[in-house]
Simulated scan of single mutants.
Amino acid sequence: MEKSDTNSGQKTKVCEKIKEQVSTPPLFKVLMHNDDYTTMEFVIEVLREVFRKPADEAEKIMLTIHFQGVGCCGTFPFAIAETKAGRARLKARKAGFPLRCTLEEA
């Protein structure tokens, strides 16, 4: 945009700054589902290794999964949630368990 300076007759340029809004990425819950084959010990192992939960918290989440059918392993941005769920599924398949992890928008 150009404006004329009324005192000197010269044209000057005015720069307008546009603020960019940076938003935080949407978060997703990683949910682990109960099944009749995956052992409680293995679920705790996955919670500790993949989701970095302390032993007491991993046990509480495992019991929630066991008694309520599903438990939240953590809340992360999509790419991290997808990676952690994939690592948990891969570890379960290698051990011969049908463990199921899904994502849900938080």
Rank of each mutant, 00 (worst) to 15 (best):
residue 2 E to H: 15
residue 2 E to P: 15
residue 2 E to C: 14
residue 4 S to C: 11
residue 5 D to P: 07
residue 5 D to M: 05
residue 5 D to E: 07
residue 6 T to A: 14
residue 6 T to L: 14
residue 6 T to C: 13
residue 8 S to N: 15
residue 8 S to E: 12
residue 8 S to M: 13
residue 9 G to H: 04
residue 9 G to K: 03
residue 10 Q to Y: 13
residue 11 K to E: 14
residue 11 K to D: 15
residue 12 T to N: 14
residue 13 K to P: 11
residue 13 K to L: 12
residue 14 V to C: 14
residue 14 V to Y: 13
residue 14 V to M: 11
residue 15 C to L: 15
residue 16 E to W: 13
residue 17 K to R: 15
residue 18 I to S: 12
residue 19 K to W: 15
residue 19 K to H: 13
residue 20 E to M: 15
residue 22 V to N: 14
residue 22 V to D: 12
residue 23 S to K: 11
residue 24 T to I: 15
residue 25 P to Y: 09
residue 25 P to E: 15
residue 26 P to R: 11
residue 26 P to M: 12
residue 26 P to W: 09
residue 26 P to D: 13
residue 27 L to P: 10
residue 28 F to W: 11
residue 30 V to K: 01
residue 31 L to C: 04
residue 32 M to W: 03
residue 33 H to G: 01
residue 33 H to V: 00
residue 34 N to T: 01
residue 34 N to M: 02
residue 35 D to C: 08
residue 36 D to P: 04
residue 37 Y to R: 08
residue 39 T to K: 01
residue 40 M to F: 11
residue 40 M to N: 07
residue 42 F to E: 03
residue 43 V to D: 00
residue 43 V to K: 00
residue 43 V to M: 02
residue 43 V to R: 00
residue 44 I to G: 05
residue 44 I to K: 09
residue 45 E to L: 12
residue 45 E to G: 11
residue 46 V to Y: 03
residue 46 V to K: 02
residue 46 V to Q: 03
residue 46 V to H: 01
residue 47 L to V: 06
residue 47 L to F: 09
residue 47 L to T: 02
residue 50 V to A: 05
residue 52 R to C: 09
residue 52 R to L: 09
residue 52 R to S: 10
residue 53 K to W: 06
residue 53 K to E: 02
residue 53 K to F: 04
residue 53 K to L: 06
residue 57 E to Y: 10
residue 57 E to C: 05
residue 57 E to S: 07
residue 57 E to K: 13
residue 58 A to M: 12
residue 60 K to P: 10
residue 60 K to W: 12
residue 60 K to Y: 12
residue 62 M to H: 09
residue 62 M to A: 11
residue 62 M to S: 09
residue 63 L to H: 08
residue 63 L to Y: 08
residue 63 L to F: 10
residue 64 T to N: 03
residue 64 T to P: 05
residue 64 T to W: 03
residue 64 T to C: 05
residue 65 I to T: 09
residue 66 H to Y: 11
residue 67 F to Y: 11
residue 67 F to P: 03
residue 71 G to T: 01
residue 71 G to A: 02
residue 71 G to M: 00
residue 73 C to I: 03
residue 73 C to G: 03
residue 73 C to A: 05
residue 76 F to L: 11
residue 76 F to Y: 13
residue 77 P to D: 15
residue 77 P to R: 06
residue 78 F to Y: 14
residue 78 F to G: 09
residue 80 I to P: 08
residue 83 T to G: 09
residue 85 A to P: 01
residue 86 G to C: 04
residue 86 G to L: 05
residue 87 R to T: 01
residue 88 A to G: 00
residue 88 A to I: 00
residue 89 R to N: 07
residue 90 L to A: 07
residue 90 L to C: 07
residue 90 L to E: 08
residue 91 K to Q: 08
residue 91 K to C: 05
residue 91 K to N: 06
residue 92 A to H: 05
residue 93 R to K: 09
residue 93 R to V: 09
residue 94 K to V: 07
residue 95 A to L: 01
residue 95 A to C: 02
residue 97 F to K: 02
residue 97 F to I: 05
residue 99 L to R: 01
residue 100 R to A: 06
residue 100 R to F: 05
residue 100 R to M: 06
residue 101 C to Q: 10
residue 102 T to E: 00
residue 103 L to K: 00
residue 103 L to A: 01
residue 104 E to T: 10
residue 105 E to D: 03
residue 106 A to S: 08
residue 106 A to N: 07
